[in-house]
Write a protein that binds this DNA or RNA. Structure first.
Lengths: 164, 164, 164, 164
DNA sequence: TTTT
DNA sequence: TTTT
């Protein structure tokens, strides 16, 4: 079906360090565990309550994975934009199981760091290592192909694009 | 945790009619099954491929449920804005299972119809039966309390707010 | 500055046909005029009121422009995702003026058709001519480079990617 | 027109302290000046370039304004969700002028602080004053009216909802 | 398992 | 005018 949109936007903190898996062909994938929380006052008791939601985030594409490996740690706060994908798998007893991930792919997905602390207690800080990584940069914001040499319409991820 | 965001935006079509459940206290909940699809050309074979993702969407709040009951049908195209929530439940064998829903709640969530056909093949068209329902209207878009009598800061869902 | 996000999401209808400009180098740009509306009940008078907002949308990138030229017309309903950009210009009297556009760029921006009618009153319908164009496809949704030949990390816009 | 969406999502920093205006009826409005930036490598020269975009953000609703007054300062990083609105006004010579704002309204709009430093060099820090304010909380995330006493479907902004 |  |  054309004419559809599948988009997730999260701002939250990593519950643990990023986990990277490498495939036989050298491709990489990175799993993030991201917490979002909300709090509200119970209308009956008047107590403040809080609920934390945990999200399985999958980064695909070598550039995104490299950024996560280098800059993200348990506790890091990030903005991610991706899409919902539900995977089917079999448990040990052979039963079908389903898991839903937020997939941030090389193109179209976005990962932006919102602090530089990396959750390690050292370094970082306000003027420090803040960084961001947008896997889908919109290129020269001043124009498309007009102006200057014709752009090779590259896209993809370029070492030089690491923005720190 | 303050400082977090958990947002899902979907545009897709209902795979079946909405399913409404009523609770003992009269509260209602509505389940929607929404499909989003994307297609791409396989880089190796050059063939066009397509993948459809199915989303469990839960509408909470009587106003949202009423709109869904009245206006949505299998095939309806909708815009929904909600948040990710993963539920834990036990299967027949007592094993823990998890399911992830897109929850569209009375406040903060949004449901907008993108066609007026309601999947029935009739009507619709540009000037026709388009409808929408925004559970979180921003009130008078021209102002807050300034101008006119002080707004009672209502919010919530009001019969008169059904926008068709 | 790393760590920032500038994103606009619109669902609305074209108030007139797309307007395409071609540059000396062959590059193209397309202007869309998109209306979004909201209605609410006046808290004082109880009357229903409506407000329409008009948005200047600029499509950059030959692929996006081509899709707009071929498929969009006055009345078409679209989903667009882009970013805010304010331009400075001089009026006839030499005074500085500013205009704010929603810029949908080749990478990162998205244009999806939500009807197939193209404003012409014909066709369309549920199983019919719906179309969409996502300038930032996430490639093979089943994987990155893992599986199959290494992906050339193309990106950009490809004639073959026109998804109709 | 029903069936439309007008949404802006920004993550950026305040270029100056919030500016609050109070109306005769006691209503309040707050202006924020928010910067978003992106950087990219020039395809011709290979140089890294950067572009900053400035956004006029208008907070409406006493709760949102109060939070901005108390917690935001020049330099604060925030997430805002609002809608585009273009205002018409007359300059000194009586000519029509237009300005486009991102309006964050009491319901439907969101303001979330992403740091606690408030740009003042004092206090805050990692474990400190982080805060957030969501003007459109989804209430009890575990349910609607089901469970417990019937919810008064309040909405609006409640002193007790200040989430710090 | 994060964060406040 | 912010931030990196």
């Amino acid at each position: 079906m054309a004419g559809s949109v599948n988009k997730v936007i999260l701002v939250g903190n990593l519950g643990r360090d990023p986990e990277v898996r490498t495939f036989q062909d050298g491709g990489k994938l990175c799993n993030l565990r991201i917490a979002t929380s909300e709090s509200w006052k119970d209308r009956n008791t008047g107590e403040r309550r809080e609920r934390t939601e945990w999200h399985n985030v999958v980064l695909r594409g070598d550039g995104l994975v490299r950024v996560a490996e280098q800059y993200l740690r348990k506790g890091s706060k990030v903005y991610v934009e991706g899409q919902l994908q539900t995977r089917k798998w079999q448990d040990q007893s052979g039963q079908d199981r389903y898991s839903t991930d937020v997939v941030v792919a090389g193109l179209g997905g976005t990962l932006t760091m919102l602090d530089g602390r990396s959750g390690d207690g050292g370094g970082g800080g306000y003027g420090g290592g803040q960084g961001g990584y947008d896997s889908g940069p919109q290129g020269d914001p001043y124009g498309g192909s007009q102006g200057g040499a014709p752009a090779p319409a590259s896209g993809g991820i370029d070492d030089d694009e690491i923005p720190f």
